[in-house]
Amino acid sequence: MNPTDTDLQALVGPQFQALADALTVEPETIADAPSLCEGWSVRHVVAHVTMAARYDGPAFMRELAAAGHNFDVLSETIARRDSALPFDTLLDNLRSDTMAAWTPPGGGSVGALSHVVIHGLDITAATGLPRIASDEATRIVLSTLTGSGAQHFGIDVTGRFLRATDLDWRFGEGPALEAPAGDLILALAGRPRPGVDLSRR
């Protein structure tokens, strides 16, 4: 049975919480470590994913207008500016009720779940931490990225068989590509991963 929006939203908060917990272990050393997001450290990524905790609807629209209604410019501006906040404040934002209930405009609950799982991997894969998203959340994001969500990142999985090696998930038919679930998600989201080449047929 497919999960409902309520089911999906119930998974969002725990993934934000798990990311905060993982980053609390060594906050002084990990905050400024590079992430997989080009030019962004861990603190930049956390500032980005927790934007909604600091900007309500009207404040967000003001920021968007100031950025010329260009979301990429807005994201870069806020990530750079708010990364200067105390890292403990950003970790508290990850744990906030606001982020647990947040959905991106037009993305719904599955968009919120994909957002935290993918950006969580941008941090953990770059810093050598294990995947922190639950297996359930990870399977849902994998299925989203191999379905309609794949169009967002321009990744073509036609004619490929994908299988996660660390949980029960598989997709498609064709030449096999087997890798840990986190690496598959990152590759499907357009992040190059060693040994995971989705361009090969």
Rank of each mutant, 00 (worst) to 15 (best):
A31L: 01
S114I: 04
P180F: 06
I132R: 15
W169P: 07
L85G: 05
T4A: 06
G128S: 14
G57Q: 13
A79M: 04
A52C: 00
L129T: 05
F153C: 06
V12I: 13
G195H: 03
L162V: 09
A79K: 01
T138L: 04
R81K: 14
V49Y: 00
S109L: 00
D122Q: 03
H48D: 03
P86S: 05
A189M: 02
V73P: 04
A150S: 15
D82T: 10
G190D: 08
D72T: 14
V46L: 02
V12E: 09
L11S: 01
S96A: 04
Q17A: 15
A53P: 03
S143K: 03
S199C: 05
P58W: 12
A20M: 11
I155L: 06
L36M: 03
L142K: 00
N93V: 02
A137V: 12
L74S: 03
N70V: 01
D166T: 00
S199T: 15
M61E: 15
N2S: 11
F16Q: 00
H44R: 12
T6A: 15
L90C: 02
T146S: 12
A126P: 12
F87D: 05
G120P: 10
G149I: 11
E28S: 13
I118V: 15
A164P: 12
T50M: 08
H44I: 11
L64S: 06
I123L: 08
I185V: 15
D168A: 14
Q17Y: 01
A18R: 09
A137N: 11
L145R: 14
D88C: 00
L121D: 09
L11R: 06
T158Y: 01
F60D: 10
Q15H: 13
S41A: 12
V42H: 03
A33Y: 02
D92N: 10
D88K: 07
G57F: 09
A18P: 07
A176C: 03
G154W: 02
V25L: 12
G39V: 11
L94V: 05
E26Y: 10
P130E: 12
L129Y: 06
L162T: 09
D97N: 14
A100D: 08
L113Q: 00
V12R: 07
F16D: 01
A20L: 09
W102M: 09
R200K: 08
T6S: 15
G111E: 07
A189W: 01
T103S: 14
L198H: 11
A66P: 13
D97R: 13
I118K: 10
G154C: 02
L23F: 05
G106A: 08
L177C: 13
Q17V: 13
N2T: 12
A33T: 04
G159C: 05
G149D: 14
L121C: 11
D88N: 10
W40Y: 02
G182R: 02
G39F: 07
L85N: 10
S148F: 12
W169Y: 03
W169K: 00
A79N: 04
D72Q: 13
V46Q: 08
T158N: 11
L142A: 01
W102S: 04
P192V: 06
M51D: 06
P3W: 04
V42L: 05
G108Q: 03
D166E: 00
A22M: 06
